[in-house]
Design a protein around this nucleic acid. Sequence first.
RNA 1: CGGUGAUUAGCGCAGCUUGGUAGCGCACUUGGUUUGGGUCCAAGGGGUCGCAAGUUCGAAUCUUGCAUCACCGACCA
Length: 571
Amino acid sequence: MRTSQYLLSTLKETPANAEVISHQFMLRAGLVRSVASGLYTWLPTGLKVLRKVENIVREEMDRAGVIEMLMPLVQPADLWEESGRWEDYGPELLRIKDRHNRSFVLGPTHEEVITKLISFELNSYKQLPLSVYQVQTKFRDEIRPRFGVMRGREFLMKDAYSFHLDQECLETTYQKMHAAYCKIFDRLGLDYRPVLADTGSIGGDASHEFHVLAESGEDDIAFSDSSDYAANIEKAEALAPVGERAAATQALEKVATPNVHTIEEVANFLNVEANKVAKTLLVLGECEDGETAPVIALVLRGDHELNEVKAEKIAGIATPLTFASDAQIQDAAGCDAGSIGPVGLNIRVIADRTAAHLADFVCGANETGFHNTGANFERDITDFEVADIRNIVAGDPSPCGQGTLTIKRGIEVGHIFQLGDKYAKAMGAAVLNDNGKNQTLTMGCYGIGVSRIVAAAIEQNNDENGIIWPDAIAPFKVVIIPMNMHKSARVKETAEKLYSELLAAGVEVIIDDRKERPGVMFKDAELIGIPHNIIIGERNLDNEEVEYKHRRGGDKETLKITDVVEFISTK
RNA sequence: CGGUGAUUAGCGCAGCUUGGUAGCGCACUUGGUUUGGGUCCAAGGGGUCGCAAGUUCGAAUCUUGCAUCACCGACCA
């Protein structure tokens, strides 16, 4: 490629509405342009990177015996009604109508289409197991798209689905996929971790997420410092404190705490640590049609946060988790939100494991402007349940039993699920087993955010001058930067010679043949992040040499012109 | 959806308070100059001032409504 015939589209200045590094560099390096919120055009350079990621994913899927196919972006509403997700998926599912007023969706994922297809295509257990994948555009009408292509509304995803007769077979494929994913992220050259994950709204049993570690990530990942345990904070279990709860030593006492609401204010006002205060949150329980929802109290230690995913899973608590309104709080506790406490509360009380370990603690007195001190479980609160409902915090013991947890930020770039029979049952995907009986299939699904990987790779690989691509996904392998080739016939001749030799050797090379000063060419090459730089100048030509520099840094070296092609080919 | 802020040339911004010929830098075109890290000089081209209504002799500027974009939160994965 010649820059003179290419759409380079680099920007000197950072566009005002790009916040994160990857978004800024993707715009400045001319990888993408925004069309509307969460919708992007991929410019030539960006597309090259996107395709490289896609191809690595494709190669490893193929190698793992997964078969490629392609499903439509637009899907009929019937399929979604059949799976139940027409109702369950919510407004993120973009619903559209055609000219005949028939309802369709823009596919946010393809479980429905694939499961329906498989229900027609497969008849016998002898055809199992089967794994298929596609690389397709997905559309999710995110409430707030952000960070460029990191969380766009339209994005490129690899989604794979596997079909099995039983759980054991599913688990074998799941492990193969796990290994294939590790291979993919290894090849991409990213610093990533597979972590235990919650299965979320897609449902199912077991799940791992693959995270690229980066400060700008939207997820918190918990790691053990002395084992390979890693889990999304949504999933990481908070163990019960060891030992018995301390015995009560203080009497229960009601104290006036005027205009004191938050845990911080309560702790300051009463001069105690936040970890000696219990906070009580009221949420709604499940209700039958027509009934008023019951209110349930969740008790946490003052310095801990509620884990909504864990709370939602407790039987009787409404999904999605809904906090009680001010009126419902008044009704259930008889006070404002800042003064709720478990003592004397006449509703279901669920205490977090750590909160349940408190003794002589402070809590709301269920009277606006008052708190209790010296509160104790068993003595003052007789009827309560204990559950793990908090987020783990750094320093907590690891659930694996080894070491303590630290927390890092991650960008979710892959997610694998064991789905079970949720969709197979709903869509009637079954085969005859070896007894000639109909048997519902068991499924797995496996996603990789292809376009998100491009952004994640930049988050992890950049400096003040621009992107530093991992070699495997760089848009070009080599850039030839001739110094003043419009003045020097020797430079021009050498540059052109090397360019055609590299092309002939199958190397992805771009030559900067613009009539620009050297500084401009260096800056652009660095911004775009091309790994290998060949610099050709008069000063080295007398020795039949050119300079070589790697984007990642290190000293410039000189190469004999005759050695360049081989040198680059071995990189 | 709640909160905050923004919208003036392709990009980054000023002008608005106090209404009166729409500006600057980058980019672009032309000529010259320079040539190992975003040269310098000169001359140019390019704007329904987000949209609509209102006030006014006159609106980028004041008023109202709407739209779009971004960030924080909630949501989602």
